[in-house]
Design a protein around this nucleic acid. Structure first.
Length: 323
DNA sequence: ATTGAGCGC
């Protein structure tokens, strides 16, 4: 079990190098009270130190794409640097979005999706930045904060489909995190784990679309399987914000993406998360139960491959031809 | 509340 003071929590990332970009958020206020491990407070405040974005725009300018010469690092040709934005109101057009993010000086282009018949804004759009780092900063500082003139909060995420992203075939290992306090954000969750596990790639707190509030659980993705396994035990019960987290393996989301099936070991034992696992464990057997009994009981459910009761054990294994 | 919503008219 890890035991570290809350000071171990890193502040929001400063652009590490000599770069032009100034992190726009005030440094987090010191946490006043007695501290709990893994507690994160005062971390994600609305980006109030910005000049408030102008809306409606002052002058009828602001074309698409944004034509100012943006600051920030030059783009690597193939890096993902586009955010998806949801919950747009009908009046939130390209100019609105440009004004929202103009102060970053790092917007490359914006696009609002419209209904092809009515021309009305469909409720989502895309914001391309000059670099992935710029997009990431915006994602961290704006997501979940109030939109100017809007009743809703920014709903931002990496754009996922149709722009050549999601191509990476690198494996990921995802844990489920439950019992999250109401104030836990993606970023807090991510940094709570990243402070101990550098291979953390990202975290997502699940938000109820109707209420806009957290559903109290989320996911953390690791690049390293060992860290994934360690986090599972070492971080279970650790605090994020004001509550201890409950941690388990994530069940795979839809079809897709690189998802982990941890530790199908070299002996060929099957892990419960392995989609190819066709073996069930039977416990609490009476001492007089034989393998033939198990065959009899389980054969109605499918084609049996192998049935095993280890010597002197009160349990057994029943392997089917398929799931 | 406890295993993830939305994606280029």
């Amino acid at each position: 079990m890890m035991q570290q003071p809350a000071q171990a929590m890193v502040p929001p990332p400063m652009a590490p190098q000599t770069q032009q970009y100034q992190y726009q958020q005030p440094p987090p206020a010191p946490v006043p009270q007695a501290q709990q491990p893994y507690m994160m407070m005062n971390m994600m405040q609305p980006p109030q130190s910005h000049p408030p974005p102008m809306w409606p725009p002052q002058q009828g300018s602001a074309g698409v794409p944004a034509q100012q010469q943006p600051a920030g690092q030059p783009a690597n040709a193939d890096e993902v640097r586009t955010l998806w934005i949801g919950d747009l109101q009908y009046y939130m057009d390209e100019n609105y979005l440009l004004s929202c993010f103009a102060q970053t000086g790092e917007v490359a282009s914006v696009k609002v999706i419209r209904n092809k018949q009515t021309g009305q804004v469909e409720g989502y759009g895309f914001i391309e930045f000059v670099s992935r780092a710029a997009a990431e900063r915006v994602l961290q500082t704006y997501n979940g904060t109030p939109m100017p003139n809007g009743e809703s909060n920014y709903r931002l995420n990496w754009a996922s489909f149709s722009s050549g992203d999601r191509r990476d075939e690198t494996p990921e290992f995802t844990i489920f995190v439950g019992d999250l306090a109401a104030d836990v954000t993606d970023y807090m969750l991510q940094e709570t784990f990243r402070a101990h596990f550098p291979s953390v790639k990202g975290a997502k707190v699940v938000i109820d679309r109707i209420t806009g509030r957290t559903k109290g659980y989320g996911f953390v993705r690791f690049g390293d399987e060992t860290e994934y396994n360690r986090a599972m035990t070492e971080m279970n019960g650790a605090f994020c914000s004001t509550r201890p987290m409950r941690i388990g393996p994530a069940t795979n989301k839809k079809t897709g993406a690189a998802q982990q099936y941890p530790a199908a070991s070299s002996q060929g034992t099957q892990n419960e998360n392995d989609p190819n696992n066709t073996t069930i464990f039977v416990g609490n057997l009476d001492s007089n139960v034989t393998e033939d009994h198990l065959r009899e009981v389980f054969s109605p459910y499918g084609q049996l491959v192998h049935v095993k009761i280890p010597q002197n054990k009160r349990c057994g294994f029943v392997q089917f031809a398929d799931r």
